[in-house]
Design a protein around this nucleic acid. Structure first.
Lengths: 341, 341
DNA sequence: AGATGATGCTAGAACGTTCTAGTCCATCCC
DNA sequence: GGGATGGACTAGAACGTTCTAGCATCATCT
């Protein structure tokens, strides 16, 4: 119960204050606070007691300045991506047991990725985990030359030395969705794509090759979409007037699919009666009882876990050729898909 | 183009390296890097050039350790609240021109507010901005004794010394919504509340007093809701069977309202034909063309701006009695409300 | 001509930790 | 008994900055 503001003068209590109060050297106090061995049981207790009494809190910055290891993983994320929020949740959970702290840096309106990374570097992070980075590959290569970098959810073609890529097999996910729809009896399956969003190209390709493999080449139809409900809605408006109307739609992601569902609902197109809809991500949205969307799930906790463990492995001297870690997606069948007719 | 890893040995370049290369003292190099006056134009150029050449990047931790000011505002936010993301966006924008940096700390599954605040304090933040904090008021008081604390979107009754509160006038927002509905001719107006969420109590109260003022006491109907689509959907299910069914519903927030809309749509209840729906927050969701929700807007950028400016004012010696800053909400009329019948 | 005051610069001490290299003292082993 | 071992502890030097003094130098004012 440190009701009083610690040390007499207004300043924050320091390790020296603790040491003085316990009657030991600051070096020993440091040993005790870190929990390393080298201190007697009695003294240890005395120091901890003193620290508690004056409300001592170690200064992270001084600590990191001195010790060469900072045990910090810098994570860059986008404020407007719920998917990133979910990843962060799991990243925190994975970093903790590995003994690492997380430093966050958001990409926001007036704050690009360049700025976000700058601050992480200035904070002396040991490794960088970038969620869906958009910076040019050259910049990533430059960064990877300085410290371990993990790119999550963005594919990168020529494997850059020192750069780890963790992503979902997006093409495989699209394939699973198409297979599922074909198995239900669908032939006329359209895809609303994600434009230039990370993963969009792979999903598009996965859709195309799966359609070809099923001999449905002439039914291939890719509509310009995007990653918001709005984008899905726009595409769906065009679709509900199209003749022949496809009997199934694979949307770029769940938000996009939700927009599609909404437009169909309003224009009297029954789902899954008249048309089936599949999303991508298995977000909270898809799980909602009243949306109940069939979707391709990304294994978020595995993505996050792998991102953290790769970064840590790198830091602890792993010299592996480093490369790409692709995680299999898993189709989650819910209520928006059924046999046509 | 710092292609080579800076200084000969593998370590990061330091200010001393820059100084050596430019042939000046570290003190002068420091002056140049900070942009303070006290250096000649020619030397300034030479130092900057040297810094660029070896790819020097100031060490934030060393810098903060030495200078007593850290120019850091610690912000605690919840990963699962889109509203917080929006606030953060504006907080970044407001902090920049004021000359402050933002340190982020997320509240996640295995990481409570206690932990989140701990790390912010260890990082030597000068002030704390807490978004929708849930910790007991006693803890807030304790914190406020150590450094300026701003609570955003959570109301606190007895004004705690040193604690600033920035929030929307939730009761007033509910009143505006009810007034709008009454003006349209509605009398039977229900409210789906937010339970224990921050602001819920005020909105509930605002709804009640507004109904009373219009002489509609016997029509007051508060249904248990929550802050997710799911909660709204659950409440709406009960509502669509109720007799008499209300002609209008005020939902706790936009997500909740979306759930309500969805259920009504599915069960053939026309909006706004059969029933009007009003949300709260004016989130992205509400603005989507296919949702087009009448809602009570919170002025996010003003909330954020005020939070930052209050924290900064405190830091710069403002001794005002400090207290509550209440921002007026504004009703945004869109397509989900109309006259009954 | 001496005082005054900028201007441009530097030496060296902080800041709050951790780390290195000891010192001291007891115990153990032959 | 003498050396080796090891546990508990400490002095003092890092870490990479910023800050406080202070030193020249040169122009300007009385």
């Amino acid at each position: 119960m440190p009701a009083t503001p610690a040390v007499p003068d207004g300043k924050r209590p320091t390790l020296a204050d603790v040491a003085a109060r316990a009657g030991v050297s600051t070096a020993l106090a440091s040993i005790v606070m870190r929990g390393t061995k080298g201190a007697g049981a009695a003294t240890r207790e005395r120091v901890l007691e003193a620290a508690r009494e004056i409300g001592y809190r170690p200064d992270a910055r001084a600590r990191l300045l001195r010790s060469h290891r900072s045990q910090l993983l810098g994570v860059q994320f986008g404020l407007q991506h719920p998917f990133h929020s979910d990843l962060l949740e799991s990243i925190y959970a994975a970093a903790e047991p590995a003994g690492y702290q997380i430093a966050l840096s958001a990409v926001a309106a007036g704050r690009g990725e360049q700025r976000a990374v700058e601050t992480l570097l200035a904070d002396r992070c040991e490794a960088l985990i970038l969620l869906g980075p958009q910076v040019p590959a050259a910049r990533l290569a430059e960064l990877a030359g300085q410290l371990p970098v993990v790119s999550v959810a963005r594919r990168l073609r020529p494997s850059i030395p020192g750069l780890e890529v963790v992503r979902t097999a997006d093409d495989e996910g699209a394939r699973q969705a198409v297979d599922h729809l074909v198995a239900l009896g669908h032939r006329d399956i359209a895809h609303i794509d994600g434009g230039r969003a990370p993963g969009a190209a792979d999903r598009r390709r996965g859709y195309r090759t799966a359609m070809n493999r099923h001999g449905l080449s002439e039914h291939i139809r890719v509509l310009a979409g995007g990653l918001t409900e709005e984008d899905g809605a726009a595409a769906a408006r065009g679709l509900s007037e199209a003749r022949p109307r496809p009997t199934a739609v694979l949307a770029f992601n769940d938000r996009c699919a939700t927009g599609v569902l909404d437009i169909f609902l309003r224009s009297g197109v029954a789902v899954p009666g008249d048309i089936s809809v599949v999303g991508f991500d298995d977000s909270h949205l898809a799980r909602l009882a009243h949306i109940d969307l069939t979707t391709v799930g990304q294994d978020i906790s595995r993505l996050a876990g792998l991102a953290v463990s790769r970064a840590v492995a790198r830091l602890e001297g792993d010299k592996d050729p480093a490369g790409e870690h692709v995680i299999a997606p898993r189709l989650v069948v819910r209520g928006t898909t059924a046999s046509p007719h």
